[in-house]
């Protein structure tokens, strides 16, 4: 599913003294198959944007019906779904676009992990062809296996699990319907180093087997640099850059001025440039080391 957004605007508490314009003329295309990273500070509009993609935030009605002549008409399509249309089937859309919120473990509610994971499956089930118990059970087990949870947790209460396991169970509850696009808001927030690593490995596995497109929202540039094929930077409601991560980090100086924490390698490159050494470096630490050592070799 290709995602195309053009000229999106969104204001929270519109018309009140606390109105905040969260999106300003956002235009962004996300191709199918990407592992896409969306970077930005809290309040940069990145979460507001992704909530448009499964219709949790809808385009204002007035805009859809009477576009002001001076404003360009907003466009928002996710695969075959046109979200500017009044007839969009949001239930069908949400089945195709899975969304994992920040701290997803706080959404667990059922008596057993299996029942919680099956929640979405039952909600999205076709009214006429309800899945059998067997079908549900096999889908739940496939999802649990995909997130790396042992089958033995299925009958446990979700509240008995450890923090990291809870998060996996919550992710299983989203991927169980096999969405084509999986969106995760700060998937690694609050985890310790190993937990972070494991979650990112998990997402790479899911990207291959379960979901064609993965979109992660993060404020950690290293996380995006190491994992994504394409990235966009949001700042104050606007998209400021859409570039592959390696291109992005050549612009370390610009990003640093925007107050973003740039990756260590980018910082080192900037410092070396100040000292008169141009290193055309890629974003991974390994590339950086290789290039420096090659330089050293030439010298010798």
């Amino acid at each position: 599913m290709r995602i195309v957004a053009e000229h999106l605007n969104y204001t929270y508490n519109a018309g009140s003294p606390f109105a905040v314009q969260a999106l300003k003329d956002v235009t962004l295309t996300i191709e199918e198959g990407e592992f896409f990273g969306i970077l930005g500070h809290t309040g940069s509009g990145k979460s507001t944007f992704v909530q448009h993609l499964n219709g949790l935030i809808r385009l204002p009605r007035s805009l859809r019906r009477h576009p002001k002549r001076e404003d360009p008409m907003p466009v928002l399509t996710v695969g075959e779904y046109d979200l500017t249309s009044k007839k969009t089937d949001y239930t069908a859309l949400r089945q195709k676009v899975g969304m994992v919120f920040q701290y997803p473990e706080y959404q667990l509610f059922a008596e057993t992990v299996a029942a919680d994971v099956a929640f979405g499956l039952k909600n999205f089930a076709d009214r006429k062809h309800r899945p059998t118990e067997g079908e549900i059970s096999s889908a739940v087990h496939a999802a649990l296996e995909a997130v790396g949870l042992d089958a033995s947790v299925a009958e446990k209460s979700p509240f008995e699990l450890s923090g990291g396991q809870k998060r996996r169970a919550a992710i299983a509850g989203v991927i169980v319907t096999r969405p084509e696009v999986l969106i995760l808001d700060e998937p690694a927030a609050g985890l310790d180093p190993r937990g972070k690593r494991e979650i990112m490995e998990l997402l790479h596995r899911l990207h291959g087997d379960f979901c064609k497109t993965v979109i992660i929202v993060s404020h950690d540039m290293d996380e995006i640099a190491e994992n994504c094929t394409m990235s966009a930077v949001f700042a104050e409601g606007r998209v400021t850059h859409v570039l592959p991560p390696r291109e992005l980090f050549r612009r370390g100086e610009e990003l640093e001025k925007m107050g973003l924490d740039i990756p260590l390698v980018a910082k080192l490159c900037l410092e070396l440039r100040k000292r008169g050494i141009e290193v055309d470096c890629d974003f991974t630490a390994a590339d950086f080391v290789r290039r420096i050592l090659a330089r050293k070799g030439e010298k010798a």
Binding site: R94, Q107, G173
Partner: peptide
Amino acid sequence: RIKNAQKARGADFESGGLIRRVRALVP
């Protein structure tokens, strides 16, 4: 936040009879 998370998993809080709606609140 919780409502959005469950809506994303297909939860429906707006349709159905009273009992269905009350049950929909459990998540």
